[in-house]
Design a protein around this nucleic acid. Sequence first.
DNA 1: GCGGATCAC
DNA 2: TATGGTGATCCGC
Length: 694
Amino acid sequence: MHGPKEPSPPNPSPDSESLVKRLAGPSTTKAGLAKDQSEINRVIAEASKGSKFYENEKRKDRDLTDRIEKILKYRDEVLRGVDIRSVEQGVDQLLVKLEAQRDLSQAIVHVDMDAFYASVELLDNPALQGKAFAVGKGVLTTASYEARKFGVRSGMAAFIAKKLCPDLILVENRFHRYSEMSKRIMDIFRRYDPDMCAAGCDEGYLNITAYCADHRLTPAECVQQMRDSVREETKLTVSAGIAPNKMLAKICSDKNKPNGQYELEFEPRAIKAFMHDLSIRKVPGVGRVNERLLDSIGIKTCGDIYTHRGILALMDKQFGLHFLLQAFLGIASNVVQPGQREERKSIGAERTFTPLADTNRILQKLEEIAAELESDMEHGGWTGKTVTLKFKLDTYQVFTRAKSFDRWVSTKKEDLFAIGKELLIPELPLTIRLIGLRVTKLKDLRAELDSKVNGIKRFFQSAEPSSPRKRRRIDTEDVGDLPDEIEDMQLSQDGFMEVMPGFHEDNEADEDDMHASAPADDDDDPIAVKKQHLDRQATPAPNKPAFTRPRPPMSAPAPSLASTSTSPFMKPTSHKQRSARTAQGPSRHSSSAEPEARPSRFPTLAHPGAPEATAIDADAEEHTCPICGRSMCTDNQGLNAHIDFCLSKSAIREAQAAASIDIGQKLMPSARPSGSAPGFGKPKPEKKVRARKR
DNA sequence: GCGGATCAC
DNA sequence: TATGGTGATCCGC
């Protein structure tokens, strides 16, 4: 289009080093990088140039640069007139205390499938063997090792990947397949630790201490055997790391990837030596931003943490001293537990689309999201008290708007849509490329159901078989015998979760339900889609006997490594939000300007179509079944029998249908009950460590 | 409690 | 020809 030799200005504002690196994506440093990363980065920056995405990255890069500048200024201030030596001595004492908490008694393994999605695709299509190919459509979820040589990475836009590797073959995701394989693999892992913790669909943590003792194996032998089993049974390869805690094991699993394993010596000296030269970026929890932040004060490796311990202590707020000291020492949690359903904190759905400015079209997207969320919530058996709307402008700036309620939010799509609409409308007009809804302050309806049913059964069982009570009014006094949840039921009102919407999902029965997608991918991958039904594993069926693996007796103290969370660093002291109006930013409506601008009431929520309340109809002569909501004239025995019947899958389905709950034909993946988060140093109520001598 | 940010997968 | 989705956590306000 232009003439040959476009004499463009010699240097049209060259991208800063940090920006070029940022554009290269988050998974550059963590994975095996290609030989000439800077050339690759140049190509990426070139291909991105001028796009809105690029401009947004540039903005974020600028913001971070400003933030660092402020931090450095603050550092200089804080250093004035401080005896850094004495500060360092204080830190040294803290290090001694931390060191005393080191626990080397457990053999922890991190297993990580090699290029999982790509390997599965290869398995099903051998023609891809040896080819540079990638999985994904608009954005890649993973790339074959051949493709990685070109700099193709997960998370990368497909068109960029094509520029780096013109012959790249693109394969679409088949999440159903990945879930299937994931399940098989996890089952193999569970033979070695029934309490293993899945972290996404392609990796997990195990405590093999007991298994090794019981089978007289060294950890390395055990892991080799496990990896052999996976390979034999699935034709897929897995890498593994063996170490005394989860953080170290995770770092180690990357050491001999692909198809390799690495064991770290269980000795403080060896561990500290291992950490000393390790890039700080390898520490889980240190991402691109914190890497740059730390770099600004001279910290690139974990060994540098000690060198700069003085300033880190003085700026604990900014950097998170405790977290970094633990990284320096190589100390972290060694507790491996399967994900608990109760741990779930939120459930949501979001979707990207071609930017829309038309209100009606935007609302249509919102409605679709509401429908997805309804499905997920009902399948999962969740409700909550806070709804958060998320939207991303065509400038890639992201905003959230939330609203909390006193009551449990209805999971009906009409209601979710109405709430979302109320949050969104005041912000318009805007041009939006993503919209999402999330519900927090969750309540686990499934657990509530269990407790309710059991409570009711206990209640009636404890009563005289045919006592005069049976016809008595069951009022609040009597309710005192019942779990609190039952009272909740009665208190619920229109528009909000009554009780038991349609949920209680059927297990193995419907294959279609398994279409869920899979998450995390290999090595360095930032890409993940909705998780699969790990519910099954995480929430054992009520009657399923607890697996009794020979657990070592508890004796060792919990390794108190609790400490901080995964996000140890802080933001700039006062990073003021860019002014609302500028750049098409949405307004912070009514916060202070017009306090009573809108009624806080929620008119649209009351939906007449709501399923009849399942509250216990205490006043009636007859009983109302807490499961299906039907009334019936019967005695306690009869009610009991009915409840049992009602609990059967088919009966529950029937109850749902009767309650006119439209439980999706929609094949929405049911959400995973969290619990896969490794959490290296969470102060979570981790159970005691299983102590066992190695 | 809300909104922005960071991170993992 | 157009850079993802789910969930968690922290911080300042």
